[in-house]
């Protein structure tokens, strides 16, 4: 099996927002103070490799580093150290929609974001129609996006991303919003993508969907990979991890 994503020994840290020096004055003053700002170690030595045609789920508690890893895969962030390599075309759908512009209409948004995603020029019109159709927003084609609901937003984002027809699809929490009808359609399209031997990396808290669709699940905790393997096994490991931490918290409270 050919690898399409390879992340080796990745470290990534951020300055925690309230500690970030956003003004030059603060920055200058901080030279005279002992360095006090904390660094948030989002990823600490993570190595992951993903094969072509695999459908991989990333699970873990909030802040465990899975979304950061997805952003590194997308090339949106660069690691502090370690190497990321990908092969093939890639489309990322991070955090609810693509960052659509609320002041533009549905069609204009798809056209703009489709261009960013690299829709070929010759197929632009066809793909825009395809995306709007998939999102079931035909009636709202010329309506400004700000008048649509959050669910519709996400639907449109997913539809636009699918039309990019990339080899690799990175999805962050797209199943969380959207009604059951749309979820059904998403899942159908997952099957389709699988048939086409596309690679999908999905971050989700919906464990039942993860179990149903993923070939492999990777469990993250505190910026590290805890385990990787068949969905059922890893998910139960995750449940143990959560309940254990709740127990230890309860114990600490006593």
């Amino acid at each position: 099996m050919a690898k399409v994503i390879e992340m080796r020994d990745i470290y990534k840290s951020f300055q925690i927002p309230h500690e970030v020096h956003t003004t030059l004055v603060e920055r200058v003053l901080s030279i005279f103070r002992p360095v006090s700002y904390e660094r948030l170690e989002a990823l600490r030595g993570v190595s992951v490799s993903i094969d072509e045609g695999e459908f991989v789920g990333l699970i873990g508690r909030n802040g465990s580093g899975k979304s950061t890893l997805l952003k590194l895969m997308a090339g949106l962030l660069v690691p502090d150290s370690g190497t990321c390599r990908i092969r093939g075309t890639m489309c990322e759908l991070l955090e609810l929609g693509l960052g659509f512009n609320p002041e533009l209409t549905v069609r204009e948004n798809v056209a703009l974001y489709g261009s960013i995603l690299g829709y070929p020029k010759s197929e632009l019109a066809k793909r825009i129609e395809g995306a709007i159709d998939f999102a079931d927003l035909d009636r709202f084609k010329d309506v400004k996006l700000k008048s649509l609901s959050t669910g519709m937003h996400v639907r449109l984002g997913f539809a636009t991303a699918l039309q990019a027809d990339s080899d690799i699809l990175l999805l962050d929490e797209i199943l969380a919003v959207g009604d059951s009808e749309f979820q059904g359609r998403c899942l159908e399209s997952f099957e389709e993508q699988k048939r086409l031997r596309k690679t999908i990396v999905l971050v989700s808290h919906d464990l039942s969907q993860v179990e149903k669709f993923c070939d492999r699940v990777i469990l993250f905790d505190k910026g590290q990979v805890v385990d990787s393997g068949p969905p059922a096994m890893i998910i139960s490991e995750y449940r143990d991890l959560v309940s254990e931490s709740m127990r230890s918290k309860a114990a600490a409270a006593d």
């Binding site: 399409v4 090339g75 190497t83 990321c84 092969r87 093939g88 890639m90 261009s115």
Partner: peptide, 25 residues
Amino acid sequence: AADKRPGEWLDPSTRSRRRSNYGSL
């Protein structure tokens, strides 16, 4: 065959520059 399909390895942070429709963007 499998090795051919995915194409060359590249650093994801540089992939944006490979897109061709720069001017239209």
